[in-house]
Design a protein around this nucleic acid. Structure first.
Lengths: 228, 228
DNA sequence: TTGGTTAGTGTCAGATTGACACTAACTGCT
DNA sequence: AGCAGTTAGTGTCAATCTGACACTAACCAA
């Protein structure tokens, strides 16, 4: 009796919550069968064919939410025998969990339905299985990683202003950041390049547009950057 | 055709290499069947019964090497369809890999045999499957983690001197560290406590003995510190 | 032309870091 | 007893980094 294997994904996007404020949100799907029928859960499914784990996570993400991930990374594998608490120990499931980021424009046209709903990351209902704990860990990882990698890029378009970039950090970290110091540290990191263009249209000084410097490799995932 | 699931472990210890110098070493087992028969590989095996993933890794570690881990953490799950290169695509295996640290005294009494051998971590032969890559990633994680957590403790006894602690860091990071600066940063972190005792016996000034402060919780694994 | 608003620069004190020199405490030898 | 040898542990200082905050710049609208 081998355990069943599944891939799930914690999907983050910056989106207006019900109060209209932009915040960190994630889509969940309603369980349509036991165990935990009716509860909200992370989108997930089995591995099919010869796809890699990452491909499985990406495919599943697209299928259940219609979204295209901008960033996708393995989070952790959960396999405690008792993680399906509440129900009889039916069948053991081991979940290889990924986390993903989707861009704002992408997230806005995501379909929402009876069975797919977006929730604010810091205010979730009680989820199925150990999914509350999984989301908590994904949030921790995102917050840690935003400080030493370029994951923030996953929330932005190709070009972005310094203020937009800073807003991403502020929402993810949940605290205001000093304008000047933020610019200083981002520029010192060398992660971004000025495109020379500016964003016109506002009724004030037009901000410069930046882009991530793709020529600089970032060792934020160590040897796994080569992709697995 | 569900993929097969296995748990493997990268085990690190500080041990004298063949030149007699203390260095970072790891035990490997020789494959006794195809694929990759005769090559060295990470110790691993299936999940049995209702044990947790971590328990499976610990059990397997004890069984194949006779060692008791001082530290055990999940590393990554590898599941590329082509990771068993060379042979026909027999059966797909997904490995949930852990990494472990064992103490020096423990490592010295580890049994070594025809089929279990210790190698210097930075000078490995060609291993079975994608295990070279896995070890490389484990090494990267260890080196990153030694700087912001207490994993070094896994290589030491309950009590240790500042010089012993520094030696661990120097071997893991592969570079000498300034005595004074090292002491300053370790003391500032608050991770260790002076026991008040000193280590007598040497023919020079007796060093103070320290111990890790267990009352301070360390968020180096985020919400997973609660153990999964 | 002026006020409002956001973009972007400058400055400065306090904290942190790295390099290195010093003093302290022990043993063993003479 | 006293000195050499050796490792433990402390002190210092300049360079760099960080956080707080004030300033100037560029645009639009009235």
């Amino acid at each position: 009796m081998q355990p069943t294997l599944a891939v799930s994904t914690v999907i983050f996007a910056l989106r207006a919550d019900k109060t209209g404020k932009k915040s960190l949100m994630l889509p969940l799907v309603k369980r349509i069968r036991e165990p935990h029928l009716g509860k909200w859960a992370l989108p997930g499914g089995p591995i099919v064919g010869v796809e890699s784990l990452e491909d499985a996570a990406g495919r599943n993400l697209r299928e259940t939410t219609g979204l295209e991930p901008r960033y996708l990374e393995q989070l952790y594998s959960f396999g405690n025998p008792d993680r399906s608490t509440g129900q009889e120990i039916s069948e053991r499931v081991i979940s290889i969990v990924y986390w993903a980021l989707v861009g704002a424009t992408e997230a806005d046209r995501a379909f929402e339905s009876e069975n797919v709903h977006w929730f604010a990351a810091d205010c979730l209902p009680e989820l199925a299985f150990d999914h509350n704990q999984i989301v908590e860990y994904a949030l921790w990882r995102l917050r840690a990683k935003v400080n030493y990698s370029r994951v923030a890029h996953g929330f932005l378009g190709e070009e972005f202003t310094m203020a937009e970039l800073r807003e991403v950090y502020e929402i993810v970290l949940g605290k205001p950041l000093d304008k000047g110091n933020f610019r200083r540290s981002v520029e010192a990191s060398g992660a971004i390049l000025a495109t020379g263009r500016v964003q016109a249209g506002g009724s004030h000084r037009p901000p410069a547009l930046y882009t991530y410097d793709k020529t600089r490799s970032l060792a934020d995932r160590g040897p796994l950057n080569k992709s697995n």
